[in-house]
Design a protein around this nucleic acid. Structure first.
Lengths: 252, 252
DNA sequence: ATGTTTATGTCGCGT
DNA sequence: ACGCGACGTAAACAT
């Protein structure tokens, strides 16, 4: 619908809301919000999006984030009022409401999106862990893994094993430059772990780098640092994926 | 444009990008992201928004937040490739890139949004402070303000003054239910303040309520609590706005 | 340019 | 339902 009358737009909007379809509207409107705080936006042309799960977004011509919005789970209604189209979105908890006063609609479309794909986010910390587990010698030659996600009272040890001399390695992985929280976390874990008789406990932080202000703290803490970048981790994973494929081929 | 061919869509897209217009597209596409981490989203129908300032949003049929995005300041380009339309958005710093492979376009529109309105957010904490400053007796009768945003080493005291007996009031305002952080903050400030000879120092938290778990801590801390809701604050502000207007009228 | 704090943060997970 | 932490947080602000 291009440049529909307000009443045509209202009817289409109501039908779209009923069917829980995606509604996309470009319109001149003003916006009021009241709830956790309040806001006011005077009249102007904006992109308005209403989704089937009851959320609403009001976007201006710039900026990543919507100028006004309401998250999923709102009650959304449209009705005519005194020559304008009123669009209200009320969120029950916390109670907050968003009201659009629409003066003119440039475009209105409703869509039923067919979309069953799964969204996969590659969490880099997890990939780093998988790379270490697949190929422990990227930490150091002779390193053998005994356990991972090993439970200790304060949480889980990312990787746990022994080095070539039989010392116990306790590895904490961070995807970002390792800072004070990582050090503190690892020290907490150490309280609940001990090396075999005559052997040492070697705490190691594995991360792409050490955070600026934490260099000296790390040095004093007795924790070792081993660099592992995401890129290196991905390389290791791909190498093993290839060899897995090779193995599969030779099996068939 | 309704159900354009991929090539028609590409042309319109390029024109829209050139003109830095808002581009709204409903299309079947798959999405890849690599940068700080990586993500993959298989084919499906989505709403794609490209704004004039070089940001891009990919929305699915549900959820407030986009499934993939790129913030403002990206280099965005569209080109045909092997029977598909490729849309790439590259962010220079940090280096990350978003790639859409578009198979079919249901709708594509470009818009130049006329929007000069100012967005005003009513920060409730600030409004509460203004209400107290305009009418100090909402805290208690006889309260006189000496200063606000008063600098102390750990930060700023929201409101600072004396009660009817000459005791010093130190007020910390919170818009949300006051919890442990507010108590701690106020206690920090107190270290650097003292009452006149023979007078008391009265720390007070002003907030709509006290957080559940902090009731007992607050009681033990020696800090007083005075309820002030946003609604009450807004009432006070409106009353004074009206009296200001009255004064202005009588002046003319 | 870089680090820090805020947000109508939102969202997912555990109790 | 509520509390807590994570996020590709993004954005504003101070350094």
């Amino acid at each position: 619908m291009i440049s529909p009358s307000l009443d045509e737009a209202r009817k289409e909007l109501v039908i779209g809301l009923e069917a829980r379809k995606l509604v996309v509207m470009v319109a001149s409107c003003s916006v009021e919000y009241t709830g956790r705080t309040g806001s006011h936006l005077g009249e102007g042309e904006r992109l308005v999006i209403v989704k089937g799960d009851g959320c609403i977004l009001v976007h201006r011509g710039r900026d990543y984030q919507p100028v006004n919005w309401q998250p999923s789970g709102c009650i959304i209604q449209a009705h005519a009022n005194d020559g304008t189209l009123i669009l209200k979105a009320v969120r029950p908890n916390p109670l907050e409401s968003l009201t659009l006063v629409v003066r003119e609609v440039q475009f209105l479309g409703t869509f039923l999106l067919q979309d069953d794909a799964e969204f996969i986010l590659h969490a880099s910390e997890e990939e780093m862990q998988r790379a270490i587990i697949l190929q422990p010698d990227i930490i150091e030659p002779g390193f053998k893994i005994l356990d991972y996600e090993k439970k200790v009272p304060p949480g889980f040890v990312d990787v746990y094993g022994v080095d070539a001399e039989g010392n116990t390695l306790v590895i904490e992985i961070k995807k970002d430059p390792a800072g004070f929280p990582a050090i503190k976390q690892l020290l907490e874990y150490l309280k609940y772990l001990q090396a075999p008789q005559g052997k040492k406990l070697r705490p190691i932080i594995v991360a792409p780098s050490v955070a600026k202000g934490s260099q000296s703290t790390l040095a004093k803490s007795g924790i070792e640092f081993k660099q592992l970048t995401l890129q290196k981790a991905v390389e290791v994973l791909q190498k093993h994926a290839r060899s897995d494929q090779q193995a599969l081929k030779s099996w068939l």
